[in-house]
């Protein structure tokens, strides 16, 4: 396949090779660094005030939203049990619910971790096997194209009906939601393996498991991680959906429970807390990705 470039090469290439490359005139340094006004060039440090401003930029939107929240809760007549509880009431509810939220976190992780770990293990392993073999691709890809996009939430009632315990059915649903993106990304990454790595492995007679795990897996690792990112997001969605059906504890269960009692400060606290846990998990995954892909500049 690499011969396309060779067969398309222009006949004049040999003649062009003898022409010396155009010499680029060297530019003299425009002025000494000391003479450059601060803040003008990329290399000179910004003045202290704008450096501080730049550090604050990520928080601007948060501060605006928080101010809006204060204003809405303070100025709008929302009644005795407002649907938008004040920030103070929410903070108090969050503080008071922390032990319960922590218990819910553990219950949720008891579903999320096994479901997601199973999805990663099976998704990566089967994705590698299918991605390496063109025949298996022809068998599996048409099926995956149909089965993959089915919204996994539709499996929730059926899984609860079929499997003996709620935890098992929730793990199953989390697994199936996270599995497809991981499988599909891994298989696509393995199938798109750079021909140079394949040739290299072939010259070294690397085959079987050694080929799969020392060549194909590292080469498709960035695909695997994007699959895991999508899979983790799906896992959280499915976890919280499944919990609203039949859990006795958990993050989704917490929000649903206090919504049923119209305890909006606690409900909003639960939403914020769940958002934090999701952000934390995503950040961990991102850190892991950067660590493992250190060789990709």
């Amino acid at each position: 396949m690499t011969t396309i470039a060779e067969t398309l090469a222009l006949p004049s290439a040999a003649l062009a090779a003898s022409v010396p490359p155009e010499s680029v005139p060297r530019r003299a340094p425009e002025s000494s660094p000391a003479a450059v006004p601060s803040g003008q060039t990329a290399k000179s440090p910004l003045p202290a005030s704008s450096r501080i401003l730049r550090k604050l930029e990520p928080f601007v939107l948060w501060l605006i939203l928080l101010a809006l929240w204060f204003a809405v809760a303070h100025w709008l007549p929302l009644g005795e049990n407002p649907l938008i509880p004040s920030p103070q009431a929410t903070a108090l509810a969050l503080w008071q619910s922390l032990p319960e939220l922590w218990k819910g976190t553990l219950a949720s992780l008891g579903i999320l971790v096994p479901g997601f770990a199973l999805a990663v293990t099976l998704g990566v392993a089967s994705g590698l096997v299918v991605g390496i073999s063109p025949r298996l691709q022809r068998i599996f890809f048409p099926f995956a194209r149909v089965a993959g996009p089915v919204p996994p939430t539709v499996y929730v009632p059926y899984a609860i009906a079929i499997l003996p315990t709620f935890q098992l059915s929730a793990i199953f649903v989390v697994w199936i939601g996270a599995f497809w993106p991981i499988f599909q990304n891994t298989a696509a990454g393995a199938a798109a393996l750079d021909a140079r790595y394949r040739d290299n492995a072939s010259i070294l007679r690397m085959r079987g498991l050694e080929y799969a795990f020392r060549v194909v897996l590292p080469a498709s690792l960035s695909h695997v991680f994007s699959g895991m990112g999508v899979g983790l997001a799906f896992a959280f969605i499915l976890l919280t959906v499944a919990e609203t059906f039949g859990a006795s504890a958990g993050l989704g269960r917490f929000v649903q429970y206090y919504a049923d009692f119209a305890d909006y400060p606690r409900m909003v606290a639960g939403i914020l807390y769940t958002g934090f846990v999701t952000w934390f998990a995503m950040t961990l995954l991102d850190k892991l990705k950067h660590r493992m892909l250190f060789w990709q500049r």
Binding site: T2, T3, A5, E6, A9, A13, A17, D199
Partner: peptide
Amino acid sequence: GSSGCGKSTLLRLIAGL
């Protein structure tokens, strides 16, 4: 040989790629 003369292809054939 110049670019496109197939010399790399020949080498790949010898390598068995």
